[in-house]
Write a protein that binds this DNA or RNA. Structure first.
Lengths: 347, 347
DNA sequence: CGGCATCTATCGAACTTTTGGATAGATAGT
DNA sequence: ACTATCTATCCAAAAGTTCGATAGATGCCG
């Protein structure tokens, strides 16, 4: 078996066609055909179903996918260790996450990370936001680290995937200043009814989901989970008014300031606050937990440990520990010779 | 990077010399030198310190060892998946354990396992009995599965190594029938003093460690942890009489029957009981836990799952779950195309 | 139904890499 | 200083890989 065959295998898997994979690999189609053919011959199984449509993996092909990717992951880890020994870090790191984190949270962190380790190629893979999809991406070896969203009541994980909470985010409502007086009247009563809302970061006003439905919702396309909020609004009221989608935080605050509706956005995104609006806590707050996921074996990848450390620095409150950059596995001077000489076979 | 280089790397690591490794690999010394040289050139680091003595890994060499072995482990997993698709299972499985388990417990299981999967090469690696040593063997990739011993109060494991209790073994004393009457007199009192001893598998007699030291201990060379028992005996009495070492269970019972001393052996080993002896519970029993250890990633190796299932069958009381032989990771028809088309780079 | 477009497989020659024997260099022990 | 035991290098032969050309297979569409 050869690594080149495995690299070709993955490329075909991803591009779904020999010809295109060959193009991307910069080799001829005949070479690629020969390469995959050799691998299949050695394994004694067919890896791809070929046809007019291109190439699609057989059951057996899918069965080995994650193993192949694991091997390539560790090839990368070896390059990273080697570059570490030369006091730099080369290689790549693939981070999978969903749209809002990919667009709002990671860019600044990864840019800083990139500045610190310029020779590392960072790859951000955008996927659906469900934890299951991201966990599968890890299992299949599509990425090294994943950042997913999970609701507060589903934090546990049944298998041995590692996961740490990065932050817990609550959404706030943004309403025009003109509504301040009206809200002032109800805020005290609401606070009393929902005491758990009392926290350091408390806003001057509070509102209930029921009240919120008096306004036209302005959804933020960037970092809220549209369905989550929409579902919650629908629970409070039968029909939800037509929703406007906006891309920029300040734009949506501007719309709110103009009295065009209520913006719902993660608390963090509401700083700095637009002059014409007020920040309003939503009682029975809807919160989501942003968590990092990775396979235990990914901890062996130096760049992954570095990224986790960077995340810990950015989110000091998170449950992340800090990792040693240098081999976390202690290598004792026990010579392999000893282990080997004791070896015997059962035949 | 090429797998052949990695295989050569491991062989040099294990044999401690280029010449011998070349011999074992069946290639010439010059070829091996060139192979390792190429790898070093590509990584840009020196992997071995060479000299009159042979070759010994540098820090960098040791740093990549576990990654290299992981890659080879998964290469093996790929072959196993491929053979599974052909309704057999080829490849190898390396099990590390310590002497008594290697000689007394595993052979029958592994022989049966071997009969079931004749094309699988089983490798039994014998090491020291400490859990730490075996865990390190796993971490460094010297084996796929480890079976270790641990005392009852150290069951927890801090990192994410998987571990399941196979069996909990208590030792019994074997004494000549002539001692029955004498023991009968004290057994009831001892049972009352140590009620936790009352169990289904209870023997007809009980004895304390203090009383045990009246007899010459006959140690069983095969499956007790000599030091463990000796230390316990010494705690009960200042000096322990000279110890006789015996290899066969029935032989040591024979010695006890002849009134030559007391045998101490794991309960399981005392079946069937020799006619001339009695089985005696030791109060404040000394127990050891035999557990299976493996890395989470080893669960991906089909043969490892098969072996765990075989162990579960042999030890139905153990905490082991039963694994699916076929890919434990569900592979959904989500095409990689989708994931890839979303991909973008941060540069 | 048949031509067309779009795949992959195969062939043979050019090219690249790998291999092994011979030899040189390095080093520790005697 | 000699010897034994390592690894590195050189070079020619062997082996493996690559590519363009071409053939074969298959679904699409008029």
């Amino acid at each position: 078996m050869k690594l080149q065959q495995l690299r070709a295998f993955v490329k075909v898997l991803e591009s779904g066609s020999f010809s295109e994979a060959a193009l991307e690999l910069g080799i001829s189609q005949s070479t690629l055909s020969y390469t995959i053919g050799e691998l299949e011959r050695e394994l004694g199984i067919k890896l791809f179903e070929r046809g007019r449509f291109g190439a699609v993996a057989t059951d057996a092909g899918r069965a080995i996918e994650s193993h192949v990717r694991t091997m390539l992951r560790f090839e990368n880890a070896i390059f990273q260790e080697a570059s570490l020994a030369k006091a730099s870090i080369e290689g790549y790191l693939r981070v999978a996450t969903f749209r809002s984190v990919a667009s709002q949270i990671l860019p600044s962190i990864m840019a800083a990370f990139k500045r610190q380790f310029p020779d590392l190629v960072l790859e951000l893979i955008e996927m659906e936001c469900g934890r299951d999809a991201l966990k599968q991406a890890l299992d299949r070896g599509h990425c090294d680290v994943a950042v997913s969203q999970v609701s507060e009541d589903e934090l546990d994980i049944e298998d041995n995937t590692l996961h740490w909470e990065l932050m817990r985010e609550s959404y706030v409502a943004i309403l025009p200043k003109s509504q301040a007086a009206k809200l002032e009247a109800t805020t005290a009563a609401l606070r009393a009814a929902y005491p758990e809302q009392a926290r350091a970061e408390q806003a001057d006003y509070a509102i209930s989901w029921r009240q919120l439905t008096d306004y036209a919702p302005i959804m933020h396309g960037g970092h809220n989970c549209g369905e989550l909020i929409q579902a919650r609004l629908e629970r409070a009221l039968v029909t939800v008014p037509a929703i406007q989608l906006v891309r920029d935080d300040f734009t949506s605050m501007e719309l709110s300031a103009q009295g065009l509706g209520v913006s719902v956005m993660p608390r963090l995104a509401s700083y700095p606050l637009h002059d014409g609006v007020i920040r309003v806590d939503i009682v029975e707050p809807l919160r989501r937990v942003i968590e990092v996921l990775l396979l235990p074996s990914s901890l062996k990848i130096p760049a992954a440990r570095l990224l986790l450390n960077a995340l810990k620095q950015r989110f000091p409150e998170s449950s992340l520990p800090t990792f040693n950059v240098r081999q976390p596995v202690k290598v004792e001077p026990l010579t392999n010779n000893e282990a080997v000489s004791y070896r015997r076979f059962i035949n």
